[in-house]
């Protein structure tokens, strides 16, 4: 285990606590034995106000490898989200999460979360990952936005998540 990775993640965690992003929640997940696993995080990303994502809160898993921060975390929406750049498995396709593109070790977890929030409303059509969402966006924008609004309505109500109430 790289000490670098653990130290950095603890620092990120402290940083997020101090420099809280309104509406977001993020932190390590509990393991079966009741401890927290610093390499496995869960985050809740709110849809941006005034967009079709408004009202929705989307759960994202962030898996860090021991080579973090040299390597980006793997970010997966769980459950998956209807969006052109999100794979059916929930995996997010975003340039800052890509070692060959814009990932840099200096990118913070905060940057990632905000980046993904922005991506929700601003899909990158150059790099589609989910055909249905991509096609609908291209063919019928109105219908696409409608779908999003339904999705936002159906996604998590933060008050119903016991985990968050207890620990944040």
């Amino acid at each position: 285990m790289s000490n670098l990775c653990i130290s950095r993640l603890i620092e990120e965690r402290n940083q997020l606590k101090k420099d809280f992003i309104p509406g977001f929640k993020a932190g390590p997940l509990k393991t079966k034995d009741g401890n927290y696993d610093i390499l496995n995080w869960e985050a809740y990303i709110p849809g941006i106000r005034g967009t079709s994502w408004d009202g929705g809160i989307f759960k994202l898993n962030l898996k860090f490898s021991k080579d973090y921060p040299l390597k980006p975390p793997k970010c997966t929406f769980n459950p998956p989200v209807f969006h052109p750049n999100i794979y059916l498995s929930g995996d997010v396709c975003l340039s800052i999460l890509n070692e060959y593109e814009d990932w840099k070790p200096s990118i913070s977890i905060r940057d990632i979360l905000i980046g993904i929030q922005l991506l929700l409303n601003e899909p990158n059509l150059e790099s589609p990952a989910q055909h249905a969402a991509y096609a609908l966006y291209q063919e019928n924008r109105l219908e696409y936005e409608k779908r999003l609004m339904i999705q936002s309505k159906n996604h998590y109500d933060i008050n119903n998540i016991p985990y968050l109430k207890r620990h944040y």
Partner: peptide, 25 residues
């Protein structure tokens, strides 16, 4: 491994979208 993890909690409002996505994957 990955597939077991997909949460089932969301069925409150029979979220078709998620169902479809899951099905496809």
């Amino acid at each position: 491994e990955d597939n077991d993890e997909i949460d089932e909690e969301v069925t409150e409002e029979n979220n078709k979208e998620i169902e479809n996505l899951k099905k496809e994957s």
